[in-house]
């Protein structure tokens, strides 16, 4: 029990370190290297306004003081502590909405997109991987593996552009970008972008799955099981797939940052109003609070995902459970 607790505490501590480091990095980038005030005032900004903006944002103070203020450790320019520790992420410089509100509104959308993509890549990846392993050495194997290889080598945005023009626009199978109104409509709009987003993952998992499965099926105890007369299907699923899933699940956890990167491009192409599109728009507009807030939320989400993957690995792998 205590070891579990210790693990949990250590894991949580580490997650906090990661979040903190990410925030420091991006905060320095946005406020130290760049100047968010030029993003705030937008069209028709007058330089006097810029000066005033620097004072208002407390950017006349040293960067370290600003960072401590952002974290909520020291008071902000108005003398009140309101930062990360207080659960506040500031306000957008472009439009003044609270960052937490903006991010919370968009998080479910990216979660929907990412969730569907994950589902898609795991299901399709495992299916292709199993099929290729079963038919290994046969033309089917070659075909599937060549296909996954192509998916790995094609730039995601190229795939997105073609998907948007082909299946969506020309064939009319999917909505042409956007988010829709109502839950079912959201899902309908999410289908194509999530497939594009999940394509790379599906290919990666398929290749990994095939490799692991080929290994596992040649292990002694699996051979023994087969020799004992268990049905090949049962051997495949119980002994093969279950074991082979372990590295795949571990990889899902580690791949989450990759999914975030993919979401930026995919959401941009499909005009999907999620965190990725927000990230790109905010970076271009130098809307620093949104960018830093996004990094907070994304790194927390990634850490949570990692922990979940760890737990899932433990559940799948009896050795790890003990």
């Amino acid at each position: 029990m205590s070891s579990v607790l210790r693990f949990a505490v250590r894991r949580a501590g580490w997650a906090m370190v990661v979040v903190l480091a990410s925030v420091t990095l991006v905060f320095t980038l946005m406020y130290g290297v760049g100047d968010p005030c030029v993003g705030k005032l937008g069209a028709n900004a007058r330089p006097e306004q810029l000066q005033a903006c620097h004072v208002q944002l407390g950017m006349d103070r040293p960067l370290s003081v600003q960072l401590l203020g952002y974290l909520g450790i020291t008071p902000g320019p108005d003398g009140v502590r309101h930062g990360l520790l207080q659960g506040e992420l500031g306000e957008s410089l472009v439009h003044g909405d609270p960052v937490t509100e903006v991010v919370w509104r968009r998080l479910p959308r990216t979660a929907l997109l990412g969730g569907l993509a994950l589902l898609f890549q795991v299901v399709l990846g495992v299916a292709i991987g199993v099929a290729a392993a079963v038919y290994r050495g046969k033309p089917m194997d070659t075909l599937l593996m060549s296909f996954t290889f192509l998916m790995i080598s094609i730039p995601g945005f190229l795939l997105g552009i073609f998907a948007l023009h082909g299946p969506a626009f020309l064939l009319g199978w999917f909505p042409v970008g956007g988010y829709g109104v109502g839950a079912m409509d959201h899902v309908r709009h999410a289908l194509l972008p999530s497939m594009v987003l999940g394509a790379l993952g599906a290919a990666t998992y398929a290749r990994l799955m095939r490799g692991e499965l080929v290994d596992t099926l040649s292990l002694d105890h699996v051979r023994t099981a087969r020799a004992k007369g268990l049905s090949p299907t049962r051997v495949l699923w119980v002994h093969g797939v279950r074991n082979a899933l372990i590295p795949v699940v571990t990889l899902i956890g580690l791949d989450l940052p990759l999914l975030v990167s993919g979401a930026i491009v995919t959401e941009e192409i499909f005009a999907w109003p999620g965190l990725g599109k927000l990230a790109l728009e905010s970076v271009v507009a130098m809307d620093a609070p949104i960018v830093v807030g996004l990094v907070v939320v994304i790194s927390v989400a990634v850490q949570l995902g990692n922990v979940t993957a760890d737990l899932a690995t433990a559940w799948l792998d009896p050795r790890a459970r003990q």
């Binding site: 552009i161 948007l164 023009h165 969506a168 626009f169 009319g172 909505p175 042409v176 970008g177 956007g178 941009e268 192409i269 499909f270 005009a271 109003p273 599109k277 728009e281």
Partner: peptide
């Protein structure tokens, strides 16, 4: 009134009737 709608998507959505 949709904001931040890229040109490519805007035209495709227009031609699809959206």
């Amino acid at each position: 009134y949709l904001e931040n709608l890229g040109r490519e998507v805007a035209t495709l959505r227009f031609r699809s009737g959206e």
